[in-house]
Design a protein around this nucleic acid. Sequence first.
DNA 1: GGTCTAACTTAGTACATTGTAA
DNA 2: TTACAATGTACTAAGTTAGACC
Length: 754
Amino acid sequence: MTSDNIPNSNPVGNEDSGDESESIPLAQIDTLAPTPKKRKSTKNGNGATKRKKRLVIKDEDDDEPLALKSPVKAKKPKTKLNGKNGQEKVKKETSQTLDAQLATPTDLIKKEKEEEETYKWWEAQDMDGEQKWESLHHNGVMFPPEYEPLPSHVKMYYDGKPVDLAPAAEEVAGFFAAMLETDHAQNPVFQKNFWNDFLQVVKESGGANVEMKDFTKADFTKMHAHFEMLKEQKKNMSRDEKKALKEAKEKEEEPYKTCLLNGRKEQVGNFRVEPPGLFRGRGAHPKTGKLKKRVYPEDITLNLSKECKVPEPPAGHKWGEVRHDNTVAWLAMWKENISDSLKYVRFAANSSVKGQSDFKKFETARNLKFHIDAIRTDYTKLLKDPLMQNRQMATATYLIDVFALRAGGEKGDDEADTVGCCSLRYEHITLKPPNQVIFDFLGKDSIRFYQEVEVDKQVFKNLRIFKKPPKQPGDDLFDRISPPMLNKQFQGYMKGLTAKVFRTYNASKTMQDQIDLIPNEGTVAEKVVRFNAANRTVAILCNHQRTVSKTHGHSVQRIHDRIKEMMWQKIRTKKMILELEPGLRRKDPKYFEELEDLSKEDEQHVHHLLLERAREQAQRKFERENQKLKAEGKELLSSSVLDEKMEKIKEQEKDLAEELKTGKPVMKSTTTVEKLKAQVEKLDGRIVNTTFQLQDKEDNSEVSLGTSKLNYIDPRLTVMFSKKFDVPIEKLFTKTLRDKFKWAIESADENWRF
DNA sequence: GGTCTAACTTAGTACATTGTAA
DNA sequence: TTACAATGTACTAAGTTAGACC
């Protein structure tokens, strides 16, 4: 028995029991550090275990129909006979007969499609637990095309010499060549892993004419150039060619796109088998760059109804296995070679199966609101528990609840070193008395989590205990607990409660609170901006980041320039007003206050931009017109036409220079003060809008709103917002999201609350 | 209790499509 | 109409969780 299992046998009698030195016997503190949790390293053991007793029936050894265990009946879509639904049905039928008289066959097919899609599982109320489907028919998976060798003149070079490779090796070289300009290809780990695997394939495929050892002597530029050329060619294809290509693609994927789930047509998500390539691990992944091998039908396990005809595997091949397991929600599966994990082909996000589990997820999170107060009270109490393990549990729960940390399971040495709550180490937090904590660690996807926060006093004390010597950098902060233990405790609080539910709950709760703060006024655009701001609060809570786009700086600069230009125009217009009516300045000094706001440099900068743009435009227009003339076989414009234009711009330049000197704008004689004032007003509006847009862009540059919208914010909140604030749902959900969240769109009203 | 791993959700990025300013 | 930026979608890596088994 370790000492931390002994209840506080030596209480210093302090009621407060707050301070670490008081509440925990020394002996207990001393034993904190040992029992380092073993780092899991992926083993390739043969302990093939079955997860649960399932209705797994393999083709070969089972002649008993599945029906004996679970009767398979093609379930009819349930439609309520009364009320809204019944009416709807009648209406549809009449409209269909009408349509049928007029419609073309394709229209009919479309109509049929719509009919198929109208199954409303959320009104059927039969969301069973264990069983995922009653019948499942599909056509298998789509394989990537076979490798086609490059033209003989396109080669990689080694030490200056062209290398002849077997197709299998050439393919791998090509993977790297295609990525030559990416960050991956500059990463030494990626290079090393690629090179090792590549040499292996070279060896296995019969070697090459040149002996290769040193990566730095390998030259993939010719191959790279070839791929770039192909890309360019594709881009330059005519409209018709592109269309034909697209049609061919659609025809090819048609059979795999959908399946029959309980007799209804539903979409399949990732029906394409992942093509071979180089593994693009995120962050400092030790295996990044390794060869992801081609997947063959023999590697694939299909899952479908017993009575479904097994799809034909590609010629000359066989399926690895065929299963009929209706307790799982996948259609096909294979094992990938990088880390021996499984990959699944699943239903699409808009399918009933996915919809139901999404619905369940949000209902569980929603249910947490009835328990959260008790839970918080409980873990606050446990923060002072004499048992070290309980203190760790309580402290971890606090971090998960308050800072939306993930559970943080153990990771192996062959994965990137990232952490979550339970796997936080000594070096990931810095403590600054009295109660400040600085978190700095890499979380999921190696995204940095950096936050300086104030925490509960007792949490601070506990964290200090968890860092006490002999603990040192590299040691686990929470060395007595693990995600399964946390989850077990959570189940005691509430059925279905796990660490991740806190994230969903807090995200949706935050969204609800934020929406409550939005005033129901203004234009649709303004309301959308407010909605996005609320969305952003959630994204920040969940630490959803994105890399700043390469063009971000550039586009920000452009917006700045645009604002400056509008400012200049506005000031210039006001100056014109004064030219017409100098007396106005005394009448309304405030209106003319900003006349001096723009510095000479700024003004000059704007002039420069203006003239540059004019020149570019003239040049482009000239070129375009000549191109057109050339295509029509007519005589080209002489360069004097362009010169003339440039001359005019030069004159304009002179005018502007003069204007800069005198401060007096050149103006049309026909204008009036009223017209000018209207212009100023218009410009003001545009300036405000653009400034707003700029702010939004800056705020969003590193925050990704999509992930929280897709996974964390209860879609019924968005629907509620849409209805209550009269903002079309199309402004808040893209087409895909509207499909995925159809259940929410049709079930929530303007009064719905999380 | 710990380990293994199947099966699922969550995540950022690469690429395709659409929108918009010129 | 074009070129480029913004937006949307597909892809697949990387998490969490739970059951089996020791």
